[in-house]
Write a protein that binds this DNA or RNA. Structure first.
Length: 821
RNA sequence: GCGCCAGUGGCGGAAUUGGUAGACGCGCUAGAUUUAGGUUCUAGUGUCUUUGGCGUGGGGGUUCAAGUCCCUCCUGGCGCACCA
C-alpha cells in the first residue's frame, strides 16, 4: 500500500470498477430480504448543491449499510425533470427546455457518480420522457372515467401585461416578477382530483406511520384539518337573487347566542349580487378582493369589512343579525360565510372592536381569569345568556342546540375538512400534456389508451413568455375520439407534483411497457426508507400517499402506504441562512470533491449533526474530516508495515493483559454503538464520534515486545473493525485499505458482548441531587452495603453535617441519591 | 396570521427510557519538532468573587432528581396548496 492518502486515485479506480461490474444492479430475489432505499429525486437544475450531497449521502450510507447486512438493496436515482426553471431558462437564453434539461441531467449524473453513490443506474427515470408520463396520462383518463377528476373554475395569478399566468413564486410584492405590473386574480376552468374523497383515509392511516417523524404526521393531520361542528342556516330577511339563506360552518355551535354578525367572503354569490345595485359595496369588493392566491398573504392582510345593509334572522332567538363583507373570509373553505362571535373568538373580537360591533358573552369559565374588554374568551365552558341552554357544558349544549336547529330545519351536525381538492392544471409548456380533447358536442373527452402518450412537442421556440403549444395548431387541432368531429386538444399540462407522486413505484419496473406498474411494484414497495427535505413534509408526501391509494384502488398495487420509514433531513445553511444563489452563500460541492475527494465530503456532511437538524456549513470541519482520514491512513500504513514482519495469530481471549482487554472493549463498544446509531437511530454523527474514539484508542496503543503477538492480534481486530464501520460513509477509502489488509470489503464486524465485562462498577453519590462523591463497588453489590459505603464517603459526610437522612434512592448501576434536611 | 420544529461552552454538537451536563470534533492557550510559516506531536480548555458557588434562551411549576415533563414568554427555522 501507498504511504500517502491520494483520494483522487483510489476513488477513480473504484468508481470505474463499480461502473464496469454494474456492482449495484439489483433484481427480484424471493429468498433474500429486500430493502428499498430512496432519496427524493432532484430537479435537474444543472448543478448539484450541498442539500443534494447531504440527502444522497444519507441515502447511500443506509443503502450500503443494509447491503452489508446481506439484504437485497434497491437504490435507484432519477430526475424530476418537468418544471418552471426550464421555461425560464428557455425564455432567458433561447434554449429549448428539453435540451437544457438533458444537458443538466448529464452534468448532474456525472457529479453523483463522482460522489460514489451506489445507485442501480439501469433503472434511471426522467419524468419528461414520454415512456414515463404516458402512464400518468393513462391513469388520469382512468380517474376521469371514475369521476375522480373533474373540471371547475378556480383562481390563478394573472399578469395583464405579459398576458400569462404566474406561479406564486413569480409574484413579488403583488407585482409580476418580470414587468412589475400589478397582478390580478383570474378565474379559469381547471382540472381537479378529488383528494377530499380520501381525506378520512389519509387522516386515519397516519396512525400506521409509526416510523415517520411525529412532527410530519402532526403537520399532515393539521393540514387535512378535520373539524367537527355544525352547519347553521340563517334565513335572509329579504331574499337576494334567489338565495333565501346564508349557510355557515362553525366548530362552536355552543356560542350561537353570541353571534354579532355574519361575515361573507367578497366572492360570495350574495356579496356579488348585492354589489350589482350598491356602488359602495362594489367598490369595496373591487378594492379589497384578494389580489393574490397565496394564503399566507391573505392571512396577514389587514382585516377589513363593510356592512351590507341586509340582515338575517337568528334561527333560535329570532333576532336580527347584520351581514358584513369581510376580506378574511375564504370562499374556498366551508361555505364562504362565517358566523362571528366576538366574545369567544379573538379574530372576531378584534373585528368587533374595530367596527364597534356588540360583544356578547355567552360562555363563562370559572377557573380562568379573563376580561372581555381586553381579549376574547376562547376556552370552552358553561353557557350563559343562552336561554334554555344556560348552565350546559360544551357537549350538552352541542347536542341541545343542534337538536333545536334540526327541529327548525336550520342546521345539523357537520364534519368539515381544511383540505381542498388538488388542482392539477398548469397553463405552462414544460410539463406532461393533460390527455383531454375538447369537443363542442361531447365536451371534455379523455384521450383513448391507444392514442397515448400525448407527446409534448420538444422542438419549440419561446417567442414570448406564454407556452408555445398554446398557439401550435399542429398540436391543438385533432378530432373527437367520440364523434369524429373537429376538436381541440387541451393545452394545459400537469402539476409536476403528479410525476413525483408515483415515481417511487415506477422504479420497480422502469421499462415495463404493458402498463403503469408490473407485479415488481408489489415486490419492492413500500419503500423501506424514504429520505428527503423537511420542506416536503406536507404537499409532496401527502400527494404521494394519495396517489398510492388511487393506484391501489385501480388494482395496480396492494399496500396502503408508499413509505414505511421517513427521514426528513434539515437544510444546509451558511452564516445562518439557507444556501442559495440569490444570497450568494453557496459552496460548490464539485470544488470540494476536486480538492479533498468524495470520501472527505461524505464524511464531513455526516459528521456534525444528526440528519434531521439543519447543518451549518464549516470550512474548518471539512479540513478536520480530511485530516482524520489522512491521519488514520498513516496509522493503517504503519500497522500494515508491522504485519509484513509478524505473524497474525488468533486472539486468545483468556490470555489478554489489561491493555489488550481495554482496546478490545473499545473496539466492540464502537461496533455496538455505530451499528445501532446507523440502523436504528440514524444519528450518523454519533456513529462517527464512536469510530473516532476507536481510532484514538488505536493511536494510543503501543506494541510492546513482550506481548507482541497478541498486541498485533487485538490491534488487527480494532483497525479492521474501524475500517469496516466506515465502509458506508467512506466506501472508497475503507474498501481500498481493507483490501490492502487482505480483508474482503463486504462484511460488517460482529459485536461480542463478552468484551464488555467489568470487575467493578462505579456509582455517583448525590446529596439532595448534587454529585458529591463517586464510589467503586463489586458487581451486584447489595443495597445495604451500597448505602453504607455511600454514607461513609468523607465528602458525603461533610454535606450531611447537621442534617438528618430522610430517604436514600438507588438507581441500579448508576447512582445513589441521599435525601436529607 | 395559522400549523410544525428548534434554542446546551468561543463554535458544531453529545447526554437513547426523568438519573453523574458538555462525549466527539473545531477553535484557542502553553510546550516540543521545524531555518521560518504551515504540518505533526504532548498537555490544558464551561464559568465565577474557587475550602465553594453558578450553569442547558427568559420566567414559573411538578419531582428525591429536569437539558429532558407541564405552563408562559422571547428568538430563529420550515410549510401555507402554481418553486420543487
Amino acid at each position: 500500500m501507498k504511504e500517502q492518502y491520494h483520494a483522487q486515485t483510489i476513488e477513480s479506480e473504484l468508481q470505474a470498477y463499480w461502473q464496469s461490474s454494474q456492482a449495484f444492479r439489483c433484481e427480484h430475489k424471493e429468498a433474500q430480504e429486500k430493502y428499498y432505499c430512496l432519496a427524493m429525486f432532484p430537479y435537474p437544475s444543472g448543478q448539484l448543491h450541498m442539500g443534494h450531497v447531504r440527502n444522497y449521502t444519507i441515502g447511500d450510507v443506509l443503502a450500503r449499510y443494509h447491503r452489508l447486512q446481506g439484504k437485497n438493496v434497491l437504490q435507484p436515482m432519477g430526475w424530476d425533470a418537468f418544471g418552471l426553471p426550464a421555461e425560464n431558462a428557455a425564455i432567458k437564453n433561447n434554449v429549448a427546455p428539453a435540451k437544457w434539461t438533458r444537458l443538466n441531467i448529464e452534468n448532474m449524473k456525472a457529479q453523483l457518480q463522482r460522489l460514489g453513490f451506489s445507485y442501480d443506474w439501469s433503472r434511471e427515470i426522467a419524468t419528461c420522457e414520454p415512456d414515463y408520463y404516458r402512464w400518468e396520462q393513462w391513469f388520469f383518463t382512468r380517474l376521469m372515467e371514475k369521476g375522480m377528476a373533474y373540471k371547475k373554475t378556480s383562481a390563478v395569478n394573472w399578469c395583464p401585461n405579459d398576458m400569462t399566468v404566474l406561479a406564486n413564486e413569480q409574484v413579488v410584492d403583488g407585482g409580476c416578477w418580470r414587468c412589475d405590473t400589478p397582478v390580478e386574480r383570474k378565474e379559469i376552468p381547471q382540472w381537479f382530483i378529488r383528494i377530499t374523497d380520501y381525506a378520512d383515509e389519509l387522516l386515519s392511516d397516519l396512525d400506521k406511520l409509526d416510523d415517520w417523524p411525529e412532527q410530519v404526521v402532526t403537520m399532515q393531520r393539521n393540514w387535512i384539518g378535520k373539524s367537527e361542528g355544525a352547519e347553521i342556516s340563517f334565513q335572509l330577511k329579504q331574499a337576494v337573487a334567489g338565495h333565501e339563506n346564508i349557510s355557515v360552518f362553525t366548530t362552536r355551535p355552543d356560542t350561537l347566542f353570541g353571534v354579532s354578525y355574519l361575515g361573507l367572503a367578497l366572492e360570495h354569490p350574495i356579496a356579488l349580487e348585492l354589489a350589482e345595485n350598491n356602488p359602495e359595496l362594489a367598490d369595496f369588493i373591487k378594492k379589497y378582493s384578494n389580489k393574490t392566491t397565496a394564503e399566507a398573504d391573505i392571512a396577514t392582510m389587514e382585516k377589513l369589512g363593510m356592512a351590507t345593509g341586509i340582515s338575517v334572522i337568528h334561527p333560535l332567538t329570532g333576532g336580527d343579525i347584520p351581514v358584513w363583507l369581510a376580506n378574511f373570509v375564504l370562499m374556498g373553505y366551508g361555505s364562504g360565510a362565517v358566523m362571528s362571535v366576538p366574545a369567544h373568538d379573538q379574530r372576531d373580537w378584534e373585528f368587533a372592536q374595530k367596527y364597534n360591533l356588540p360583544i356578547k358573552q355567552v360562555i363563562d369559565c370559572k377557573d380562568i381569569d379573563y376580561d372581555l374588554k381586553k381579549a376574547a374568551l376562547t376556552n370552552k365552558g358553561t353557557l350563559v345568556n343562552s336561554d334554555a341552554f344556560d348552565g350546559m357544558d360544551f357537549t350538552q349544549s352541542l347536542e341541545g342546540i343542534v337538536k333545536a336547529l334540526e327541529e327548525k330545519k336550520a342546521g345539523r351536525k357537520q364534519v368539515n375538512f381544511r383540505l381542498r381538492d388538488w388542482g392539477v392544471s398548469r397553463q405552462r409548456y414544460w410539463g406532461a400534456p393533460i390527455p383531454v380533447i375538447n369537443c363542442s358536442d361531447c365536451g371534455a373527452v379523455p384521450v383513448p389508451e391507444k392514442d397515448l402518450p400525448v407527446v409534448l412537442p420538444v422542438d419549440v421556440e419561446f417567442s414570448g413568455v406564454a407556452s408555445p403549444i398554446k398557439s401550435m395548431d399542429s398540436f391543438i387541432k385533432t378530432s373527437c375520439p367520440c364523434c369524429g368531429k373537429d376538436a381541440e386538444r387541451e393545452t394545459d399540462t400537469f402539476d409536476t407534483f403528479m410525476e413525483s407522486s408515483w415515481y417511487y413505484a415506477r422504479f420497480a419496473c422502469p421499462d415495463f411497457d404493458k402498463g403503469m406498474l408490473s407485479t415488481e411494484a408489489d415486490y419492492w414497495t413500500p419503500v423501506d426508507h424514504y429520505i428527503g427535505g423537511i420542506e416536503h413534509a406536507i404537499l409532496h408526501l401527502l400527494y404521494a400517499r394519495f396517489f398510492h391509494k388511487l393506484m391501489r384502488d385501480e388494482g395496480l398495487i396492494h399496500s396502503d402506504e408508499p413509505f414505511q420509514k421517513l427521514l426528513t433531513q434539515g437544510m444546509v445553511l451558511k452564516d445562518g441562512a439557507k444556501m442559495s444563489k440569490s444570497k450568494g452563500n453557496t459552496i460548490d460541492p464539485q470544488e470540494l470533491i476536486d480538492r479533498y475527494g468524495a470520501d472527505t465530503v461524505r464524511l464531513f456532511i455526516m459528521s456534525d449533526v444528526p440528519p434531521e437538524q439543519s447543518l451549518e456549513w464549516s470550512d474548518a470541519g471539512v479540513e478536520g474530516a480530511n485530516r482524520f482520514l489522512k491521519k488514520f491512513w498513516q496509522t493503517v500504513f504503519s500497522f500494515h508495515q508491522s504485519l509484513q514482519s509478524n505473524n497474525l495469530v488468533a486472539i486468545e481471549t483468556e490470555n489478554l493483559n489489561d491493555r489488550q482487554k481495554s482496546l478490545r472493549k473499545q473496539t466492540h463498544a464502537s461496533i455496538k454503538k455505530a451499528s445501532d446509531d446507523i440502523e436504528r437511530r440514524h444519528t450518523f454523527n454519533t456513529a462517527i464520534s464512536s469510530i473516532r474514539e476507536l481510532v484514538n484508542a488505536i493511536n494510543r496503543f503501543n506494541i510492546e515486545e513482550s506481548t507482541k503477538e497478541q498486541d498485533i492480534a487485538v490491534l488487527n481486530e480494532a483497525v479492521v473493525s474501524a475500517l469496516q464501520l466506515m465502509q458506508p460513509i467512506t466506501p472508497h477509502y475503507s474498501s481500498h485499505l481493507l483490501s490492502a489488509l487482505n480483508v474482503s470489503a463486504n462484511s460488517w464486524p460482529v459485536y461480542d458482548d463478552s468484551t464488555q465485562t467489568e470487575s467493578s462498577q462505579e456509582f455517583a453519590v448525590q446529596v439532595n441531587g448534587k454529585v458529591r462523591a463517586k464510589i467503586q463497588t463489586a458487581i451486584g453489590v447489595d443495597k445495604e452495603t451500597l448505602e453504607k459505603l455511600a454514607l461513609e464517603q468523607d465528602n458525603v459526610q461533610k454535606y450531611l453535617e447537621g442534617l438528618s437522612v430522610r430517604k436514600v434512592i438507588i438507581v441500579p448501576n448508576k447512582l445513589v441519591n441521599i435525601v436529607a434536611n
